[in-house]
């Protein structure tokens, strides 16, 4: 069975959105879940968060950033072509309830997984304060969509080209300092950003959740490759997560484990780009 790509667009430099036909997955999808796809028989299985889903149309949207070989290859595909494998929805759905005030913090391509959460939290009756950021203005994604599903939207860029000049976590801290009662914070982005964000929010009386992105193979609890340490205990991100209590996460281990294949990944990407230049792809 093949999974057809219905739409593809570059929404920011090196960041792409893709709409894929996968009716069974769309029917079952919930906010906070992800899929694993494989381009072809020779490809790796890579996890991507479900950015949006439309049950009636039977489609799933994902947003991905060009990182290594697989995401670069994915970029080369266009509407009408198909993916060999597309499995999901994976992971435990986010725990969405009416909690009152919720802060959602997204950094870089991490804004993509924040969007379905914002939508769901708002629908559940929460007041959603979203804070999104990027290195600079042109790398900022989903501003308009985020505005639609948030009560309030703040923007931060590292270089100050838009919104607050600095980090998303600066804004988060300011809100917490203002004394406004916040029930929950969800932070999604590069592991280092989640680590720093969790550190900043920790002293406050608020629940802090992060969505972890450990290296995965099957996504069904079968390989243990995605294991993380939560409160001193080993958990599997794909079945026990991906959302975890940020205060309990061993971020240092997560970051180190993500580097397991760094050497090979770099080689694979370089070889691929070399072949692209030679016109082999």
């Amino acid at each position: 069975m093949a999974y057809k790509i219905l739409k593809k667009e570059e929404i920011a430099p090196s960041i792409h959105k893709m709409v894929i036909e996968a009716p069974d997955v769309a029917k079952a999808a919930k906010a906070g879940q992800f899929i694993i796809l494989r381009l072809n028989e020779f490809g790796e299985r890579i996890p991507l968060t479900i950015f949006d889903f439309e049950k009636e149309k039977g489609t799933i949207s994902v947003i991905f950033q060009e990182m290594g070989k697989t995401t670069k290859q994915l970029t080369k595909l266009s509407a009408g072509e198909s993916l060999e494998d597309f499995v999901g929805p994976l992971g435990t759905p986010a725990d969405i309830r009416n909690l009152g005030n919720v802060i959602l913090v997204g950094g870089g391509v991490g804004v993509a997984p924040i969007y379905p959460l914002a939508k769901a939290y708002t629908k559940a009756g929460n007041r959603v304060i979203s804070i999104i950021g990027a290195r600079s203005k042109d790398l900022l994604i989903l501003e308009d969509q985020m505005r639609k599903v948030s009560s309030k939207l703040f923007i931060a860029t590292d270089d100050g080209s838009k919104g607050h000049h600095g980090f998303v976590t600066d804004i988060m801290k300011k809100i917490l300092d203002s004394g406004e009662k916040v029930a929950r914070i969800v932070i999604i982005g590069p592991p280092i950003m989640m680590k720093v964000g969790a550190g900043v929010a920790s002293p406050y009386d608020v629940e802090i959740l992060v969505s972890l992105n450990s290296i995965m193979v099957d996504g069904t609890g079968m390989c243990g490759g995605c294991r993380v340490t939560i409160d001193g205990k080993t958990k599997f991100t794909c079945v026990d997560g991906p959302e975890f209590n940020a205060r309990k996460v061993d971020f240092v281990e997560l970051i180190d484990r993500l580097a397991t294949y760094r050497g090979e990944e770099t080689k694979a990407a370089e070889k691929y780009e070399e072949e692209c230049r030679c016109g082999l792809h």
């Binding site: 193979v217 390989c223 490759g225 340490t229 180190d256 397991t260």
Partner: peptide, 13 residues
């Protein structure tokens, strides 16, 4: 959980 420690399932898969 050190990098390079596999379950047999992951390694064999």
């Amino acid at each position: 959980n050190f990098s390079g420690v596999y379950s047999a399932n992951e390694f064999l898969t």
